[in-house]
């Protein structure tokens, strides 16, 4: 079996008295789209910066394709980074920015121009070569940053919350585009984000970070459907605790006729305390008769807003399937 693209062993980092990363072990496979997901301050960006070589680990090792790079400078590592603020050189044209890595490696002028233009083409920015970064929109800068990194054909591409500064619509477009590019070039993508939906949408696997440690590593479905801890359950989605087990809101069917036929093999009776209409879906907050409060999510397939708003205060029966229940170890 070939060495993993990235292998972290007992990786640690402290800034003075503050422990940012406390002993991380992680293998990232070749060609994988891997996300590090976690709230701010959870250590995910620090791990990325250590892999890039910007931060020196306090302890542990980093291997890239089987080679120990823990003590190497960034310029001696076969990885490239897309920065959160893009970090485009403002005094250079778009083309010069993309060419920079090749120029440093002394690639001949004609070849590097060709490759840079090709990279710009692959992010659909052919006509922008002579522009300055300041003349581009946020999404375009984002794509220049991507081209500038990809043109060097790194073993691993590191992306530090690259979509954070974009508005929602553009972010969703870029998510699809990033995934497409990754599939096309076949490079391992290591993606840092605090947006659970982004991680679930794009990743082959996700590592969920909390307090400088990894809580769970798994596919999006594993992390979402079978969260390993209460923290993961809460961070990657809303979690309802009903009688000692947890159920995701969209798995719960809200039945306005409590006497009708049951949906699923588990039921609970309650009263709708709040109705939140959100366009495509409606969120029902239901107070259970046995105590406790749950959130149920329903698609607005049949109903319109007026219909659902009237449901506040009505008695409902909730139904779900026991296979959708999960248990998480209780935190102290």
């Amino acid at each position: 079996m070939p060495a993993p693209a990235v292998r972290l062993h007992d990786l640690r980092k402290s800034f003075g008295d503050v422990t940012a990363v406390s002993g991380i072990d992680l293998d990232i496979h070749d060609g994988e789209f891997f996300s590090m997901l976690g709230p701010s301050g959870s250590g995910k960006t620090t791990v990325l910066r250590m892999i890039a070589g910007f931060e020196r680990p306090t302890g542990g090792t980093i291997e890239l394709a089987g080679r120990d790079v823990t003590r190497l400078a960034p310029f001696d590592r076969d990885v490239n980074t897309v920065f959160q603020d893009y970090a485009l050189f403002p005094h250079m044209s778009v083309l010069q920015n993309v060419e920079y890595g090749l120029k440093v490696k002394r690639v001949r002028r004609t070849e590097r121009r060709e490759r840079a233009l090709e990279a710009l083409g692959s992010v659909r920015l052919e006509g922008f070569a002579e522009r300055r970064p300041a003349q581009l929109s946020g999404g375009q800068r984002q794509r220049v940053a991507l081209a500038r990194a990809l043109v060097n054909e790194p073993k691993v591409l590191l992306l530090d919350e690259p979509l954070g500064a974009l508005d929602l619509k553009l972010r969703e477009e870029m998510q699809i585009e990033l995934k497409e590019i990754q599939r096309r070039v076949g490079i391992t993508f290591l993606f840092v984000t605090h947006d659970q939906e982004e991680a679930l949408t794009m990743s082959d696997r996700i590592a969920v970070f909390n307090n400088g440690a990894i809580e769970q590593v798994g596919t999006p479905a594993e992390v979402y459907e079978r969260p390993a801890s209460a923290f993961v359950a809460g961070f990657v989605g809303t979690s309802n605790l009903i009688g000692g087990v947890s159920v995701r809101p969209e798995k719960i069917h809200v039945d306005t006729q409590p006497e009708g036929p049951a949906q699923g093999d588990r039921q609970a009776l309650g009263t709708i305390a709040e109705v939140v209409y959100a366009g495509a879906v409606t969120r029902f907050v239901v107070d259970l008769e046995d105590g406790g409060r749950v959130v149920a999510l329903q698609q607005n397939q049949q109903t319109s807003s007026m219909d659902v708003m009237r449901l506040r205060g009505s008695r409902v029966r909730l139904g779900w399937k026991s296979v959708h229940e999960y248990r998480t170890p209780q935190e102290d």
Binding site: A52, G53, F54, A73, P74, F75, V79, N80, T81, F83, Q84, D85, A87, L88, F89, Y100, G101, V104, K105, R148, A149, N152
Partner: peptide, 10 residues
């Protein structure tokens, strides 16, 4: 980040 980017690109 510009310094990081330059080092990152070699």
């Amino acid at each position: 980040s510009l310094l990081d980017a330059s080092g990152d690109l070699g």
